[in-house]
């Protein structure tokens, strides 16, 4: 398993009371800021991010362009389709309802934020499926479903695609709804997988 990179928490205060207050505040997630566990796989060198303590478990895993290419090639899909998908920054995405009530998500409501501060829509599975249909291909799997309601115990996975280059850095804002209330989280400094497998020492 990968080694955990805990959040950096530095206390610089003159008094023990101030220190305790800062420590207390640092223990819980700030509003809109998920507690993210960032891990580097010792086997592959690839990075993953995983939220903890939320109703929706959210995990994002770097995926190498060659892996994306391989997945689609073994499906017998045409080269132009494979070239297009593998040109994207692709993440394996795993979502899970950890509560005893239904919750819903909609990829169309999520945004990726580039370093210039601009917010961008994420290409949805429907966008891909429509493009593939125009190419005469009925394939509709592998991408994270556009939207789902997860009942108790339900979970799902699929690729999330961002039109960025290997190694690019961005923030990902995602949200979900439960009991008519929407929760939003942001994963900062997400990095696209490198073009080639990382060197493992």
């Amino acid at each position: 398993m990968g080694h955990s990179v805990p959040p950096v928490r530095v206390i610089r205060s003159r008094g023990w009371l101030t220190g305790l207050v800062i420590l207390f505040c640092s223990l819980g997630p700030q509003a809109g800021q998920a507690e993210m566990d960032r891990q580097v796989s010792p086997d592959t060198g690839l990075v993953s991010w995983k939220s903890s303590g939320d109703a929706l478990d959210f995990e994002l895993l770097q995926v190498l362009p060659d892996y994306v290419r391989a997945v689609f090639t073994t499906r017998g899909l045409p080269k132009p389709l494979i070239d297009k998908v593998s040109s994207y920054c692709v993440f394996g995405t795993i979502l899970k309802n950890t509560t005893d009530k239904p919750l819903s998500y909609r990829v169309a409501d999520w945004r990726y934020i580039t370093p210039d501060g601009k917010r961008h829509e994420i290409r949805t599975k429907s966008d891909w499926v429509a493009e593939w249909r125009d190419m005469g291909v009925a394939f509709r799997w592998s991408m994270l479903p556009d939207d789902q309601t997860f009942e108790v115990g339900d979970w799902g996975q699929g690729f999330t695609t961002i039109p960025l280059q290997p190694g690019d850095v961005f923030s990902l804002e995602y949200n979900w709804s439960q009991d008519g209330h929407t929760e939003t989280r942001t994963i900062k400094e997400v990095q696209c997988a490198p073009a080639e497998p990382p060197n493992i020492d």
Binding site: S41, L64, Y67
Partner: peptide, 20 residues
Amino acid sequence: LYVPLVCLVLLSVFAVTARA
């Protein structure tokens, strides 16, 4: 050409997901 690569990467890349 690709089946061995897929199998290898399935085992490695998604090994991270084992906890999930």
